[in-house]
Design a protein around this nucleic acid. Structure first.
Lengths: 203, 203
DNA sequence: TAAAAAGTAGACAAATCTGTTTACTTTTTT
DNA sequence: AAAAAAGTAAACAGATTTGTCTACTTTTTA
């Protein structure tokens, strides 16, 4: 445990330390949740690593749940901002816009602190009985993904075919991070992009 | 929380109640971990639901970690037993044996208590610093999957092509349970089987 | 410069979690 | 039938967790 704490501290020092308290807490918490999990990381650890007092922490985030929700929002915004940036560089071709997802995944898998998807993590750590609001947020993320893809497919094919393609593409998109993490091979994103190309070539 | 506890109790009464203590603990724990998560379910809950005393519990499982490991072993054995049964009904065709995976998934998604993959859950709940033995077991499960597929592909194509296909098929196999759970549509297994058929048709 | 806001440090309460132990009862085996 | 094994019930220790609160210090603002 010692070495990884130090690893993490190095990471933190580099860019997080100079931020304002609220953002410093958020990014420290995000990094810790990402590396160790939402449930096993306690408030005290986040406070210690982000270098704020407990009182300040609770002033910015009234509960741990609020903080976890903020981390999910932070992650979702990053993902879709990156995606929209890529889309804006294209010429409005729906197929290319869908394929851009896999380029975004490839870049994500290449990040040094890549450790799987926060929403997949949340799907497993939050349940509908103990943590309904967080779980709803997780579901909403997948609905966002489906909507991004479906809005493009609807320009190209029927609703029936579109529904199947959405499920197939989402399987690839959610499976890829897991296999990238287990295998340590970020190329998985490109292998799966090839499948997506073939799928889209049929319509 | 009340209603789902009752849901679960109904499930337990049906088949678990008449088992011997050790198996009753194991299956009760498996069901609870599956529904709510490994970390949020405490020993006391498992003891209460399985109807044994704390002393008996610790006689059979010296620690919660031992119990979680036993649950993972239990799950892995079920999965690969089902797979081997399907393989034994085929004529030794490697492609058909790989495709049988998706039929196994389809049946799994159809189970009433289906709630995602225990190993995907474990990948997110266990980390290498706090829970190394459990995390290793999770990794081993994916290695098993890869070995099952690779041993079949090696009869059909080169090592290079095989490596890519393994990653692609594993993406589908790990992504499918997540999308099946989120969408509530077990057909995802069959949609992804179609992709696998197309992939295998190219070699 | 003086008041207000925001911060630190850390004790503390209350709940919860894993695991141990004691005292007693039931079941199984010989 | 008696001894041994296995079980129940529940108190308890010790650690940990979230969140509150007090006393004091620094920073910002008017």
């Amino acid at each position: 445990m010692e070495t990884s704490v130090l690893d993490f501290k190095d990471l933190r020092t580099a860019e997080i330390e100079k931020l304002k308290p609220k953002e410093r807490i958020l990014k420290t918490a995000y990094a810790l949740f990402n590396k160790f999990g939402f449930n096993v990381i306690g408030i005290d650890r986040i406070i210690a690593e982000s270098g704020v007092s407990k009182r300040s922490f609770y002033q910015y985030f009234p509960s741990k749940t609020d903080l976890m929700a903020a981390c999910l929002d932070f992650r979702e915004a990053l993902r879709f901002k990156d995606l929209e940036k890529r889309v804006s560089l294209l010429d409005g071709n729906p197929k290319a816009e869908i394929l851009a997802i896999f380029d975004s995944l490839y870049e994500w898998f290449s990040e040094e602190d890549f450790n799987g998807c926060a929403f997949n993590r949340g799907m497993n750590e939050f349940n509908y009985t103990d943590s309904k609001p967080l779980r709803d947020k997780v579901d909403q993320h997948f609905i966002q993904w489906a909507a991004f893809i479906k809005s493009r497919l609807d320009k190209l094919t029927t609703a029936e075919k579109s529904e199947i393609l959405v499920a197939q593409l989402l399987s690839l998109i959610t499976g890829a991070p897991i296999i990238a993490m287990i295998s340590g091979n970020r190329e998985v994103a490109l292998f799966d992009k090839k499948i997506a190309e073939d799928l889209l070539a049929t319509i």
